[in-house]
């Protein structure tokens, strides 16, 4: 029974159903605020997908991710508010900025292994925060950036309304997920995963570590920049707190709960936790009392999160159903899908 439900979840139809739900959500929502929360959750999900590339697939714990999110937001904010750019050129500018900075930081930081990389990026994240806070001539310091332009709808839609903006974000989320699903199944995605399994082994397979890691890092910072730019376009007022390390920690939690290195984990984890913290108001401030132990329990008992554990479970089941001798040809649907999703 459970297995049947599970098999159903793995069908392509399930994805369509989820997309359909997302499309009608603004009509189901009780109020505009819920639509707004959902759009915020989507934005975070995009950033978490980025984190998943470098940390989930490539295995490098990047603690500067929130910093790049903030850079995306600030680039868009400053270009539109101070330099008179309109939204879309500034939006592209934000992507380019995070990609270029991602490249520069990546080239330096990815020469470092494991702990060194994590510590280095922690410091990079903090430098970004300090610069946003102290470099007043450029960033307005603690006052933050106001009057950020909303996306220009070319006379067709008004993105200052919540619902159109929601669809805009949804569009970008779908795009982001589409690319990740393609990436994760491709040879490039497999290359990243091989690096996660170990630098030494990956190199012995002829994989150029630096080139692939930098590529993964740039992709991930660009995702963060995309999310940050959308965020700035939505709230239209940002401050140095966007670069607070706690945002990075939030994203790591979303990623781990959903399932690090999985395809649907980042979305599930982000949506789930954003809604839970939203609905339990007291959690807003003290969410870390739960998130903290949750992280610990997850890495000890369920290191691959909800989706990863689910996929493992379903794979074991499907293997157990096939008699020993025939396992070779057991291309039953769940296995196949699990393989693609893992």
């Amino acid at each position: 029974m459970l297995l049947k439900i599970a098999a159903l979840l793995m069908k392509p139809g399930a994805k369509m159903a989820m997309l359909a739900f997302a499309l009608v959500f603004p009509f189901l929502a009780a109020n505009e605020y819920q639509v707004y929360v959902m759009a915020t959750a989507f934005i975070w999900a995009i950033a978490v997908y980025g984190l998943n590339i470098i940390t989930g697939y490539c295995g490098q714990l990047n603690l500067a991710h929130g910093g790049f999110f903030a850079i995306g937001a600030y680039t868009l904010g400053l270009l539109t508010a101070d330099y008179g750019w309109s939204f879309w050129p500034a939006f592209v500018g934000a992507l380019v900025m995070t990609a270029v900075l991602g490249f520069l930081v990546g080239v330096v930081s990815l020469r470092l292994k494991e702990h060194y990389f994590a510590i280095f990026t922690l410091c990079v994240g903090f430098i970004i925060y300090l610069l946003l806070d102290k470099w007043e001539e450029l960033t307005h310091g603690a006052i933050g950036v106001r009057d950020i332009a909303a996306p220009y709808g070319f006379g067709l839609v008004d993105f200052t309304d919540t619902t159109p903006f929601y669809y805009l974000v949804l569009g970008f989320l779908v795009l982001a997920m589409w690319f990740i699903s393609r990436l994760s199944k491709s040879l490039l995605g497999r290359t990243f995963i091989a690096i996660r399994n170990g630098d030494e082994l990956a190199e012995s397979l002829g994989i150029n570590l630096m080139r692939n890691k930098v590529l993964a890092f740039v992709l991930s910072t660009t995702y963060a920049g995309l999310a940050g730019a959308l965020y700035a376009g939505m709230v239209r007022f940002i401050g140095p707190e966007e670069a607070n390390i706690n945002h990075t920690f939030d994203m790591i939690t979303y990623l781990l709960v959903g399932g690090i290195g999985t395809l649907s984990g980042p979305l599930l984890g982000t949506l789930g936790l954003v809604w839970i913290t939203q609905s339990l108001q007291f959690l807003e401030e003290y969410r870390m009392i739960i998130f903290g132990p949750l992280l610990v329990v997850l890495v000890i008992f369920f290191p691959r999160g909800i989706v990863g554990s689910f996929l493992t479970w379903i794979h074991r089941k499907s293997q157990a159903l096939v008699p020993e001798g025939k396992r070779k040809d057991s291309k039953v649907t769940p296995t196949k899908e699990a393989e693609n999703n893992a």
Binding site: F179, R182, L183, S186, L187, L188, G189, R190, T191, A194, L205, G206, I207, L215, L219
Partner: peptide, 12 residues
Amino acid sequence: RLRTRSGLWDVL
């Protein structure tokens, strides 16, 4: 993988 050449663009 080392005998192949596809990159980011091929994935896109």
